[in-house]
Amino acid sequence: MDCTKSIFAGKPVDFEVIDVHVHYGDAGTYQLCGSEAEGIVHTMGRLGMDLCCCCGNSAASDWYYINENVAKGMDRYPDKLKGYVVVNPFYEDLDPAFWFERSPGFIGLKVLACVQGDLPLDHPRYHRFYEYADRHNLPVLVHTWIAREVNEMFRMAQKYPNARFICAHSALTNRPAKEALIEGMKICDNVVADTAISEIYDGALEWIADKIGTDRLVYGSDFITFECSHILGRVAMSKLTDDDKEKIFSRNAKQWLKL
């Protein structure tokens, strides 16, 4: 497939695209356009994206509000949007089961510890959520950035082998985080990494794909935190084979998320 040709024509690439890392709702701290369901679906149509897996923005604040917001969006677009329940370690009344009953669109959990008191990802307060995912064989999208966070996530992945972890960002952040990811993946097979990062250089995706294999990469863009066309284009115009691109854009996600 000639992705470059499609992109230069301003047309969607000829791959099914499942985005495993999408934010939903205003962040509050900076200006955003199209952050609710209609804006997300509009961008999906423009770029030919098939499915977006969303977590509520403002994870730092009211967990009921943001999860309900995502649930309402999924009610409106059940074929376009799926969701992760954003967990919060400080509220014992946050029961993941409630949300899976609330909407069939919820497919997993999201952990974003850096905006929730910066607890370690393996802090005991998070364990009940990992246990839940382990018990129900659910995906857990985990925000990581630095090596410490990657290592914490792998400790949890080892402890809860039936949970299916998606390591966000760190395949493309900094050298120590990437090294931690590469080492962790050698001993833990219930982890994949996503492609989400706002600023990236050419060659980075090919490099990490060579180290961890394209079977363990899933397409995630982090939009609407920021635009996603440049990330989609970076994957599509990479030097990877069409087969590898297809795995990253959708095939791996279907398997990992049981879609």
Binding site: I7, F8, A9, G10, R46, L47, E199, I200, Y201, D202, E227, S229, H230, I231, L232, G233, R234, A236, M237, S238
Partner: peptide, 12 residues
Amino acid sequence: GSATAAVSLVCL
């Protein structure tokens, strides 16, 4: 920065 990302941003 990324050239592939930069052209995609404009084209799409």
